[in-house]
Every structure is written in structure tokens, then in C-alpha cells.
Design a protein around this nucleic acid. Sequence first.
DNA 1: GGTTGACCCTGTAGGGACTACAGGGTCCAG
DNA 2: CTGGACCCTGTAGTCCCTACAGGGTCAACC
Lengths: 135, 135
Amino acid sequence: MRPVGHCTIGVLSGLSGVGVETIRYYEREGLMPPPARSASGYRMYGPDDRSRLVFVRRARELGFTLDQVRRLLDLADERAGSCQQAQGVAAAQLREIRRKLADLRRMERALNGAVAACSGGTMPRCPLIEALAAA
Amino acid sequence: MRPVGHCTIGVLSGLSGVGVETIRYYEREGLMPPPARSASGYRMYGPDDRSRLVFVRRARELGFTLDQVRRLLDLADERAGSCQQAQGVAAAQLREIRRKLADLRRMERALNGAVAACSGGTMPRCPLIEALAAA
DNA sequence: GGTTGACCCTGTAGGGACTACAGGGTCCAG
DNA sequence: CTGGACCCTGTAGTCCCTACAGGGTCAACC
């Protein structure tokens, strides 16, 4: 379906923000389809590959594991009544993102308070260390 | 300085919320000092070890790498003019936490919108996939 | 007092998600 | 026609655990 490759792996890497080695790793792991090859064996990619790769990167940034991304991509590839399933996967992930958000906010407050208390002077005990060592 | 050990590694694990294997790993990595040993070779820990371990766990939860935690602990161990340095390490970490927070909030919005748009019907294209595949 | 069964020990291997070589081939600009 | 940037495969390393395997120890129960 990918008509004729447009760019090499290095260019795709630049376009997608995913490292060359990581792209090859994703191919090994079945997240990216084996691309067309030039006469000399170079991987040749088209715009579909860029979209897919960006999707993978974004999903990773959203905290999906590679396995979850794989499932999401499988759903997208099937393209039939898959929306409900994708929604399920995504809703679960949304719950986890919200949990992470809450954790991070709590951490931010704690660290911010600790850094503020630690005025930079040469106090006998560092409040930052104290703050984190507390039960 | 640790007078006489109070508890075994399993109890310490329960008290600190850090797994037994992980405690031993931290010892190998130099984050926890080699504890006293019972006659039969069991690791015996005191309250200081619990505090230190809780500190490590908290710092990890705050997103510090083991290496950063090691540096923080070194500073705490030295106990002389270390406050400023600890503050530097922590401030850097705070910046990264805030970056992560911003990212997560963006992700939460995107995913939330995508899940909402993806009404569960059998649409020709799944908006969730579309949302993340966009440039 | 003998035997479970839960705990502890060391050491090594596995996992997830990359990341970095090593040892080679290709392509193109000067 | 040569230098340097790119590409290939395959393997090994990183980080931070986590899970064995193969054994010793300890407390309790019968």
C-alpha cells in the first residue's frame, strides 16, 4: 500500500522525533511494519510511516507501554468496530494519567516547599533532606 | 554507629515500602550501607536504615534517578555546607517535574477529548487514533 | 524432637525500552 | 577518487528493578 518510499530512516527520524535505533527497534518489535527497501537495502519510508511513528511517540509520551501502543495500533489497523475497544484502552489510560498527574502535583508541592525551606545557608541540618526522610 | 539491629530485611521491607530484593539491590549499589549481621548472617537493620530507605523511596517517587539520590545522600552524609548543593539538585529536579506536569496536562486534555469524541459507535475512522497521529 | 513452612542468604538471569557499539556497505560532494 | 556522512545487521550494554535457583535458618506445631 505504501507506494514508493520517500525518505531514509535518518530523515524519518528527524521528521518524527524518534531516534534511528529506536525506529529499527520498533520494527523488530512489530510496532512499525517492515518498510520498502532501496536497491541497496536502505529502508525507504513514506508519509504513512511518519504518522504511525508520531502516533507511537505521542502514545509513549502519554505513558502507554509499548504493549498498549501495539494493541492500539492493532485496533487502528483492523478498522472495523474498533472504536469502542480503543476507547476502552484509552479510558483506562486516562485514569492512569490522572493518577500520575495527582502524584506529580503532590511531589511538586513537596519539593517546592523543601527547596524554599532550604534557603541555601549553611544550616546544621538541611530541610530538604529532612523533608524527604520523614515518615 | 548503628547500635544493635532491630529487624530483619523482611520487616524493614514492610516498614519502608521497599521490596526485599530492591533493598539488597540498593545495598549493592551503595545507596544503603552494609548492615550488621546476625550470627547466622541475616541482615539486621535499625531505625536509621528505615529513614534512609524511606528517603530513597520518596526521592525515587519524586523522579530522582538513583544517581541523583546517591548524590543527595552523599550530601546528607557529609553534613557541612551541603544545603546549597542539595538545593541545586532539588531545584533542577523541580524544573523537570514541572515540565512533566505540563506534558501530562496536555496529554490529559488530548486523551480526554479523544475519548469523548470516540463515542463508541462504529465510525469509519477512530478519532482517538486520529488525534494522536496528528503532527 | 522432628518436620513443616516462612523467612533469609548468594548469585545469576530476565524484563522493558531503549542506546551504543562493531564491523561492514553505500552515496555523494569536492 | 577519496573522505565523510549516512545506512546495514547483530550483539551487548544501560537503568532499575524483579524473579529465580539452590541452599541455610528459625519458630511453631504435633
